[in-house]
């Protein structure tokens, strides 16, 4: 059975509000909820306002706020790192604020000044500044995670790895990026409690396959390795094993990464870097991938210098006898 709007009670007011015919007090009640929405749907609001500002034909009326969404924005945002997303959100809120204030200004000006070109020029200038800020945060919209980057094959070192890690049975060990899974399996084999960190969402499948039947031994974190390491208590991990991220990071990124790893190590704890040979990197990667990544691998000897500079003891360089991944091992002083 279908019922029409039953506004027939004795308490129903006679005045009506919106086009739907709801009484004004009901409209007010529902609008109280709409005011709890966040600072608006930021991008379309901004883009739409700017489009109207730059199109003389549309200055006379405010168009409906919903006008579709830029097709590529979702794709651009998917692989963004948390820090970049946060920056994007801040910019978006700024843009929305700017748009809202601009609307108020233009409304006021329209009421009082017949010719408002100067106002629009000023707003366009502000818009351009914001767009430049957005572009600085995301110049190309291409993320490392979107590139076809093969996982380093570190399987040559799985037999040596337990000795480098030392007695870690039941101790916490970080494996930063899981590559071809062989390193994770080797660390799992030591009996360590493993923090497995990888930006790829498929991490859960990798962990499942690397540690079958041992639930709880491996804790999976989908995310940025350096952010994960930076969030760990100092001296809380018995070993850290890094691959992948050590190769493609920028110089700043490399420094931040190994500094965070060294900080997380307990006294005597081992830092193991599995680094791709530069010649293999150049030969194996497609040119666009090579060009668009923020960095390229250090030589293993360079890593030894960096680790010593950070105060880690006796860096050892193990050059690959097979495969294209070298190993660099150092320890935090006791």
């Amino acid at each position: 059975m279908t019922e029409a709007d039953g506004t027939t009670g004795s308490d129903a007011p006679t005045t009506t509000g919106d086009a739907g015919g709801l009484p004004a007090d009901e409209v007010e009640l529902l609008e109280a909820f709409e005011r709890l929405a966040p600072a608006g749907s930021f991008r379309w609001g901004f883009d739409d306002a700017m489009r109207r500002l730059s199109s003389p034909d549309e200055r006379g009326t405010w168009v409906e706020p919903w006008d579709g969404l830029p097709a590529d924005l979702w794709d651009r945002g998917r692989g963004a790192k948390a820090s970049e997303r946060m920056l994007g959100d801040v910019i978006a809120v700024l843009a929305q604020e700017l748009t809202e204030y601009s609307q108020r200004i233009v409304d006021d000006v329209r009421r009082t000044v017949p010719t408002d070109t100067a106002v629009f020029d000023a707003l366009r200038y502000l818009a351009a500044r914001v767009e430049r800020l957005e572009a600085a945060a995301d110049p190309l919209g291409i993320r490392p995670a979107d590139l076809a980057l093969p996982a380093p094959d570190a399987s040559a070192w799985v037999e040596a790895l337990p000795a480098w890690l030392g007695a870690v049975d039941g101790r916490p060990v970080v494996v930063g990026e899981l590559g071809d899974r062989s390193v994770l399996e080797a660390v799992v084999g030591t009996g360590a409690d493993v923090d497995a960190v990888d930006p790829r969402a498929a991490l859960s499948w990798t962990v499942r396959d690397a540690a079958p039947g041992r639930p709880g031994q491996v804790r999976a974190t989908v995310g940025d390795v350096v952010e994960h390491l930076a969030g760990l208590p100092a001296g809380s991990r018995s070993a850290v094993v890094l691959s992948g991220c050590v190769d493609r990071s920028s110089l700043d990124g490399k420094a931040t990464l190994v500094t965070a790893a060294a900080r997380a190590l307990e006294s005597g704890g081992a830092l193991v870097l599995l680094v791709t040979d530069q010649a293999a990197w150049d030969a194996d990667l497609e040119p666009p991938v090579r060009d668009l990544l923020p960095g390229r691998p250090f030589h293993a000897d360079t890593w030894a210098v960096v680790l010593a500079h950070l105060g880690l003891e006796d860096p050892e360089v193990h050059l690959a006898e097979r495969g294209s991944v070298h190993a660099v091992v150092a320890r935090r002083p006791r």
Partner: peptide, 25 residues
């Protein structure tokens, strides 16, 4: 409407007062 058929109270409008009245009735 397709799922409920005649087995429920269907509202063609849903102002708060109408919903409250339908539930009370």
């Amino acid at each position: 409407a397709e799922i409920v058929g005649d087995a429920g109270v269907l509202l063609d409008r849903k102002g708060p007062r109408a919903v409250a009245a339908a539930v009370a009735a």
